[in-house]
């Protein structure tokens, strides 16, 4: 029985979580304060580009994308003074790599009661890497409804795209080597906020 550990990142090699990792080759690329500032900026940009929050729906991609979507929704709601619909969209069943790695437990999909038809849907994820997760999310969204437009917000863009996909809102661009892992830690899951860069693989 294998499930990918929940602390593992989707777009990185599955590996042991490194919350306690004190190795010298682990580097902090975003601090808690920087994450906070990035999210605030993205919230403003979303409102600006979307011309207000009227038909906005935020959908986080599990696991950490959901927490980020909730934080963005809070910020937007506080700017606008009215709640923003927020939900989650699990893409597991839409992935194209079922033959390549073990099936995993499904995460929750929760579409806000108002639905997505005719809405501006912002997909939220923590790291943009190959683009395959976003592709799967777009396919999954097809089966949920027909938004007016779909945008993508990510906390980190680490490059190495394998598909013609780009993010509309990026917290920080972090050039990486394929031999590195980007590890996003969020208070909701990991106790504290940080984005770490560390060598991939290895039996740590």
């Amino acid at each position: 029985m294998t499930t990918v550990p929940s602390a593992g990142r989707r777009d990185v090699e599955p590996g042991p979580a490194a919350a306690e990792d004190r190795d010298a080759d682990v580097r902090t690329v975003l601090t808690a304060a920087e994450i906070d500032r990035s999210l605030s900026r993205i919230a403003h940009e979303v409102l600006e580009r979307g011309k207000g929050g009227d038909d906005l729906v935020l959908l986080g991609i599990p696991t950490r994308g959901v927490a980020l979507a909730r934080r963005l929704a809070q910020r937007i709601a506080s700017f606008e003074g009215s709640p923003v619909p927020v939900g989650s969209l699990d893409v597991t069943m839409y992935r194209d790599d079922l033959r390549l790695r073990p099936a995993r437990a499904l995460e929750r999909t929760e579409i806000p009661a108002s639905g997505v038809d005719g809405k501006l849907v912002v997909l939220v994820d923590d790291v943009l890497f190959s683009g395959r997760t976003v592709r799967a999310a777009l396919t999954a969204l097809d089966d949920v409804g027909r938004p007016r437009a779909v945008q993508l917000a990510v906390l980190v863009d680490r490059g190495h795209r394998e598909l013609p996909i780009r993010a509309d809102y990026v917290g920080k661009n972090i050039p990486t080597s394929l031999r590195e892992n980007v590890l996003v830690q969020l208070a909701e899951h990991d106790g504290a906020d940080a984005v770490l860069l560390r060598p991939a693989g290895g039996a740590r």
Binding site: L98, A105, E107, V144
Partner: peptide
């Protein structure tokens, strides 16, 4: 095993949620 049985049941639970939608078909297989 207990964990495997629970994984099936948990997965089935999510499948059931997806089956509430208008489009029931998933591209997985």
């Amino acid at each position: 095993s207990r964990d495997e049985a629970l994984l099936v049941l948990d997965t089935a639970h999510e499948m059931a949620g997806l089956q509430q939608r208008e489009i029931k078909k998933l591209p997985t297989l």
